[in-house]
Write a protein that binds this DNA or RNA. Structure first.
Lengths: 111, 111
DNA sequence: ATTATTTATTGCAATATTACGATATGCAGA
DNA sequence: TCTGCATATCGTAATATTGCAATAAATAAT
C-alpha cells in the first residue's frame, strides 16, 4: 500500500532506513557531493549546478535537513547549508556497524 | 512526477543511489540483518521472522537481488539466499568513499 | 497421480515520492 | 516604500513503492 509497517521492525532498522534515504536519490547524493566539494557552505546555486527547478532542490534540502545530515543557517536573505558533523559521524557509524558484520568471523560460505 | 531525472547526475551518484536502496526500507534492512545473523543461508522463513506476507517478502528479495547485494541458489523446492560477498564489498566501498570525504583535510568550519 | 509445500508472479489498492508552476515570505537596497 | 532577489510553501500531476490476496509454477512426499 505504499505504507511502511514501521512497527514490525527494530529501532535500529528503522533508523538505518531513515539515514539511507539521504543517499537513495541521486539528487540528494549530488547535493551532498557539492557540499563536500565546496568546503565552505553554500546556498541554492545548486539550482545552477544540478539541472533541477528551485522548488525541487528546496524539497530535497528539506528532506536532508529532516534527516539531520545537513544544517542551514540564515545569512541575510540567503541560507547557508553545510554538513552537520555530528549527524554525519552518527550515520557513518550506523552504516559501518552494518558493513562490519560481514564477512562474519568464521563465515563458512553458504550459497 | 515521481520520476527521477537520472540523466542529470553522474554515474557515481546514480550508482550510490541505487545501492542505498538496499537499505532505505526497514524490511530490507531486516532481511539483511537476518542473513548476517544466520551465517548460513536461509529461505523465506523470513515470513515468520518479519511479520510481512509472503509476496511482500518475495518482492523485497527480488529488489535486493536486482541490486546484487544478495544471491539465491535453488535448493530443491526452496531457495537459499545469502549475501553476495563481491557486491557487498563494492557497496561498502562506495559508501566509504563518500564518508571519507568528510571532514575534509583542513575543513574550516562553515555554518 | 495426487497432495502438500515453497516461492514467484499477477493484479490491484493505498500511499509515497518526484518534479514543477504559481505563489508567498523575508530580507536588501534604491 | 517599492523593487528585486532568495528561498520556502502550496497545489497538483505523473510515477514509484509498499503490501497483500489470488494464483501459478515447480518440486517433494505420500
Amino acid at each position: 500500500m505504499g505504507v511502511t509497517k514501521t512497527n514490525l521492525f527494530s529501532e535500529t532498522q528503522n533508523e538505518l532506513a531513515l539515514a539511507a534515504k539521504a543517499f537513495d536519490h541521486p539528487a540528494r547524493v549530488a547535493i551532498i557531493h557539492y557540499l563536500l566539494k565546496s568546503n565552505a557552505c553554500i546556498n541554492g546555486d545548486l539550482v545552477q549546478e544540478l539541472g533541477l527547478a528551485q522548488p525541487t532542490i528546496s524539497q530535497h534540502l528539506r528532506e536532508l535537513k529532516a534527516i539531520g545530515i545537513i544544517q542551514g543557517t540564515i545569512e541575510g536573505s540567503r541560507i547557508s547549508y553545510c554538513i552537520n558533523p555530528v549527524r554525519w559521524a552518527e550515520i557513518r557509524n550506523q552504516f559501518n556497524q552494518l558493513f562490519d558484520q560481514y564477512p562474519a568471523p568464521l563465515s563458512g560460505d553458504c550459497c
